[in-house]
Structure formats: structure tokens, C-alpha cells
Nucleic acid binder design. Structure first.
Lengths: 262, 262
DNA sequence: CGTTCTGTTGACCACGTTCAATCAGTGTGG
DNA sequence: CCACACTGATTGAACGTGGTCAACAGAACG
């Protein structure tokens, strides 16, 4: 009963719902290609705006989800469990990201989505996607671009995991999140930059995403702090030496940006 | 000059080109959703059919490719190089697979594609994809399905790499290739099944795909052979005990099939 | 029929895991 | 206001998977 489960965690946003025409993250989301004068059209398809509390689960691995979501606010972890009960975080989803789309051949979601922080979600019924794509060809391109970007990130993680040491892959993850958050913050504030981002993850979260135990993750964090490359405490991450960190991580910013597949 | 480079390795297929209307692998490729009576239409867009020799490179990481390809015959490795000069194979592409599509924000390919065996490729100009999608909405859905399937495979590999031991991830890869080849062979022969597939990979290829050194890959192969789970020699792979191998690999066939994302 | 590529084997060692204990911060309830 | 519980960060010691290096055997190919 995914429906009952979702009703428990999702609540209709009691604040006035945000407006697609003035949405601060629209340019990175599903409607990025839709012309400004047709944006009212998109609102027809947004079923509702929901809130979700930190720690709760949006959907479980194996659910048949009726909705796909654009994250308006909050951090989410998309993860799977191993047979041994360990958690592998496949990726972190941030504001502007599109989640709940990926399912397997039976229409079951391939992973679990958990809210790390409180979140606000724009919900779209999955069955309407085909119609949306027919009416607005730009939606098809957005979807392809979004999936391709996620694919690119996944490949980079994959690439990193097998060939990099713990300090390299953790540095990579921190830089990826840093730049993804900078992109969102830039869209919202209009461009002013600091070297600090909100960082709600625990060291265990970072470990589960990079395939390192929390014990060793801690050793890596202490080393990065000792080398004055980062500061990290009180849910804030400061990048002190982006250049040195980029070298260690073998990080390439181009993989974060939306690909020009078409 | 990607063009010059490609002219060197790609040769126009001198055999009569295969016909989309009778293509044995069409049901798993880009035109899977296109109605039978409109298939002549697709032929307009196929620019040419090419052959490529084993060992040569179709495109390099960073190229601006003008074409995307459906593999009609042959095995390909899609890979990247680490800073240290090691090769990471992101995935193997088999007959029916669609390659050359994935590029980064600058329109550069994110990986290199090398032919492991001799191959035959159907080429489509990238710039025509938008028009194809507009004329045939099914093409959009195919593309999204294809990219989602690749994403799903990538996630499974990623999941495997970090959490699985060498024997587990190598078993997973062998089973994945086994089932993907069985699907192709089924489409071509009409269904008769054996527990043997052609297997042109070296142990080093397998190692580069699973993030294991070729020395340790060899240790794993010998163990799998000793336990009578597989036979592997002379470019053939025999799965002797699929059940036991599936258990070791924690393999789930649903991830291989095309996802029902829409 | 030699050269090159692929597979096989052994010795050694390092990165990261496992298990265990402790500490610091943050609520929570009496 | 403090005792208590709970979560996350920190540290140490022992161990093991898989990497590195080096050498050789066998297969494939021109």
C-alpha cells in the first residue's frame, strides 16, 4: 500500500504554493525549456505541493509510485540495501532535482528515497508524463537531459569508487555537493558566492555514499581538516582550498552541468 | 579532427545493408516502439551502415561526435582513463545497444568506445534526433527508456563495486553479460537456449570493468572454475550453475530488462 | 616458428575493515 | 536542574581482501 504509506509522511504544504512562473529553481528542473509565456500550462500538471519531515521515507525500493517529484527544498538520499543489511547511497538529491522517475521493468522503484532534512516537493502524476511530452516536446528533451545528467554523475561515482582511494572519493563527493549547491544558491540569490554550503550529512552518510566505513570516513575527514582543505561542523561545509581538493579528487566540473545530448 | 579519425576506422559495410523492417534486433533498439508500417521512415534517417575492426576505437573521450550508433553486431567497451593511466570500463555494449549518445555540457563524449570484436554499426546523424523525436513521439520514449536502462545498469554496477567482494562483482558481470546475450540470441534464433555465450573478453577486460586487477581476476576465475560454477575458454563462457552464481552475485534479472519508466 | 598477448603462480604488504571503547553534543523526562 | 539516553565523532588494535611486483607458461597469430 504505497498510498497509505505516503499519506503518512507527505503533508499538503500549508504555506502558499510557489508559482511555476516565478520559481527560483525552474531553470534547472523539468520545465527548463518551456517558454515563459506557457508556464501557466505546467501548473495544470502539478498535482500538489507537499512537505516531508526529515528522516521519513518518500518511497521504498519496490514501491509502485504514482508520482514523480521535483524537489523544491531539502536534501534526499536515494539508496539501496545490500543482502548483508548495509546501506549504499546511490546519490543525494538536492533542490531542483527530479526523483521518483526511475523504475525497473515491472514499474517498481529501484531504490528508496529518504528525506535527510525537511523538504518541499512538487508532485506530478506519472501517467500524465506521456501527455506532457506530446504537448510540449521540450519536456522530452528535459527528461532526456535530466536522466543523462544523472547517468553522467552515476558513471563518475562508479568510476571513482573502483579506482580511487577513500580520500579521493570523499573529496570528490564533497566537491560535487559543493558545486551542485553553489549552482542552486546562485540561481536563488542571483550570484553572490561564498565558500560555504549547508551540509546536513553525517559522516556515516558520506561513508555510505562512497563505500567507506564511518570509522575510516572519520579518519579521512580529520586528515582533510588537518591539511586545512575543509572545515566541517554544525551542518556547514567550508571549502578552504578548492584547488588542492580538486586535484586530490580528480574532479571535473563539466560532469555536474547539464549535458547537451541533443 | 574526429572525422578523419573515424574515416580511418569505419568502413562502409560492403555487404548488402540490413533492412530496418526485417531487422532481428530492432525490438530492443531505438525503433522498438515504431509501428511496423512506418519503419521505412526510419531508414531515411540511417545514414549508413559501417564495419569496424576489432581493437580499433570508434570515438575517443572528448570527441565531438556527429553520429550516434546502434550496434548491429559486435562487442564494444566504453571506458575512461584515470589520471594514473588505468582503464575503467564503464560498460560493455552489445548488439542492439545504442552508443555515442552520451556527451557532457560541452557536447564532448564522456568516454571512449573501443571495438572488442569486429562490428557492424547503423549510424544516425545526431542533429536529426530532435526532428525524429518530433515526428515520432515513440522515439522520445525509446530514448528515455534506453538511457534509463543504462542508468539502471550503471547504478547496479556502482552498487556492486562498493559493497561487493571481487568474486561477487565478477560473478555479477558474468551473469549480466550472459543474460543480455541470451536476450539477443533469443531474438535472433527465436528462443532456443543453451547455457553458453560467445565471450570475447580477456580477464583483464573483466578486471577493468569490475575494478579488480587482472591478477586477482585470475584468482577469482580459477575459484569459479574450481567450484564448477563456470567454464571459460576459447572465447566461450558456459554457466554451469546459474543458481549458485546468482546467489553469490546477488543478481536480479529485472535490472537487465527495459524499464517501464513512462 | 618466433613474437606477442593472455593466463597462472608466489611473496609481500597496504589500505581499509572489523570490533571495541570512549567522548562530545543534544535532547528528554523526572 | 540534573540524570539519562541517544546520536555522531574519535581513537586504537588486529586482521584480511586485494594490490604490487616479478617471473613464467601457454595460446594465438602473423
Amino acid at each position: 500500500m504505497p498510498k497509505a504509506r505516503q499519506n503518512r509522511v507527505l503533508k499538503i504544504n500549508t504555506q502558499p504554493h510557489t508559482d511555476c512562473t516565478t520559481c527560483s529553481i525552474r531553470q534547472m528542473a523539468l520545465f527548463q525549456g518551456v517558454p515563459q509565456n506557457q508556464l501557466e500550462w505546467t501548473q495544470h500538471y502539478r498535482e500538489n505541493q507537499y512537505t516531508i519531515a526529515a528522516g521519513s521515507t518518500l518511497f521504498h525500493h519496490g514501491d509502485h509510485t504514482q508520482h514523480v517529484y521535483t524537489i523544491y527544498d531539502g536534501w534526499f538520499a536515494l539508496h539501496q540495501m545490500t543482502a548483508a543489511g548495509k546501506r549504499q547511497i546511490l546519490r543525494f538529491a538536492l533542490p531542483g532535482d527530479f526523483i521518483g522517475f526511475q523504475v525497473d521493468c515491472n514499474g517498481e522503484t529501484s531504490h528508496t528515497a529518504s528525506a535527510i532534512t525537511n523538504g518541499i516537493l512538487c508532485a506530478f502524476p506519472r501517467y500524465k508524463l506521456t501527455k506532457m511530452m506530446e504537448e510540449q516536446p521540450k519536456i522530452s528533451e528535459s527528461l532526456i537531459t535530466i536522466v543523462s545528467r544523472d547517468m553522467s554523475l552515476c558513471q563518475q561515482h562508479f568510476f571513482g569508487m573502483t579506482q580511487k582511494t577513500a580520500i579521493e572519493s570523499i573529496s570528490f563527493l564533497l566537491l560535487e555537493l559543493y558545486h551542485r549547491m553553489q549552482a542552486k544558491l546562485g540561481h536563488q540569490t542571483g550570484g553572490k558566492q561564498t565558500n560555504t554550503i549547508p551540509f546536513p550529512l553525517t559522516q556515516e552518510d558520506v561513508g555510505d555514499a562512497t563505500g567507506v566505513t564511518k570509522i575510516h570516513t572519520n579518519r579521512v575527514f580529520r586528515e582533510l581538516k588537518k591539511k586545512k582543505l575543509i572545515e566541517c561542523s554544525h551542518k556547514k561545509l567550508v571549502i578552504l582550498d578548492e584547488g588542492a581538493l580538486t586535484d586530490i579528487a580528480q574532479f571535473d566540473l563539466d560532469y555536474i552541468k547539464n549535458p547537451q545530448v541533443i
